[in-house]
């Protein structure tokens, strides 16, 4: 139950930045409008591009805007604290706390994402629905699957961000790695362009990469493009990536821990 408390505290911490949240919603909405018109133009030329119709595409655009902060596509979240604490050396305290290091920060990040889902996720979706014709799931089960998928997306994103933060153990300055990680996340998640538009084999490749779990997979569940076996496979792939990444984080932390001991903190 400690982790629930951590998540709640994190939720509250983020809820204090009201002005920033409002400004962010405004920005997400502006970009939602711009990208919607772009997609409308694409699907006007090719009404079945990527297996989507134009309503799918516009819905995709707004949900993707809703995901930016929720799954932290651009980085940020509690892993930023980790990077800071590695730099200042405070990380030693965290590593020797009697609770799971990853669990502690993952709980915090899930609390953050819950707040962002309710504000920067919900608000742009409402704006999008008011301005454009969006597709909404017709069964509650689909909403549930979508939420599970978003949660898995947050864990995958957390795993990637944590690995990036851990590079701070070895590199003095992690900004370079951070920006390259951001490029991959924006491009391979579906945020820049739906992954279904990628040509030929590159489409299968990007759909199998971990970043697809951040945006593309949850939205395909929402749109009803993956149902039944496909839906289970999608969630399974997300869960697999989540497990692999968290294991990777654990491994890296163990190596870093040993390094800290050798160096004497």
């Amino acid at each position: 139950m400690l982790y629930v408390a951590v998540a709640l505290r994190s939720f509250r911490r983020y809820s204090t930045y009201t002005a920033a949240t409002l400004a962010g919603i405004f920005t997400n909405s502006v970009f939602g409008v711009i990208i919607s018109f772009t997609y409308i133009a694409v699907w006007k030329e090719n009404p079945t591009a990527g297996g989507y119709d134009v309503t799918d595409a516009v819905t995709f655009c707004w949900l993707a805007q809703a995901m930016i902060m929720t799954v932290a596509v651009w980085g940020g979240g509690t892993t930023d604290d980790v990077a800071d604490r590695i730099r200042t050396g405070d990380i030693v305290i965290d590593l020797y706390r009697p609770v799971s290091f990853l669990g502690w920060y993952l709980a915090g990040d899930l609390g953050r994402s819950a707040y962002h889902l309710l504000t920067r996720g919900l608000a742009p979706t409402v704006v999008g629905a008011l301005l454009f014709d969006l597709r909404f799931p017709d069964s509650p089960a689909t909403y549930l699957l979508f939420l599970v998928s978003v949660a898995l997306g947050v864990v995958v994103s957390f795993g990637i961000r944590m690995l990036v933060a851990c590079t701070a153990f070895w590199l003095l300055d992690q900004t370079g790695v951070l920006s390259l990680a951001m490029v991959c996340a924006v491009f391979f998640s579906g945020l820049a362009v739906p992954l279904v538009l990628f040509p030929g084999w590159t489409r299968d490749l990007v759909l199998a990469l971990p970043w697809a779990a951040l945006v593309q997979t949850p939205i395909d569940l929402w749109l009803g493009h993956s149902t039944g076996v496909e839906a289970v496979a999608g969630l399974g792939l997300q869960a697999t990536w989540a497990a692999v990444l968290l294991l990777g984080c654990g491994l890296v932390l163990r190596v870093a821990d040993r390094r800290l001991v050798v160096q004497g903190g």
Partner: peptide
């Protein structure tokens, strides 16, 4: 590294446009 990253990041938009053009011949 960051200058390189900056070139790549800002280039994403154009690559996205090129991806779109694998599905269409013209926009607007």
């Amino acid at each position: 590294l960051m200058t390189l990253a900056s070139v790549v990041i800002t280039g994403i938009d154009f690559v996205a446009i090129m991806v779109m053009f694998t599905n269409v011949d013209s926009l607007g």
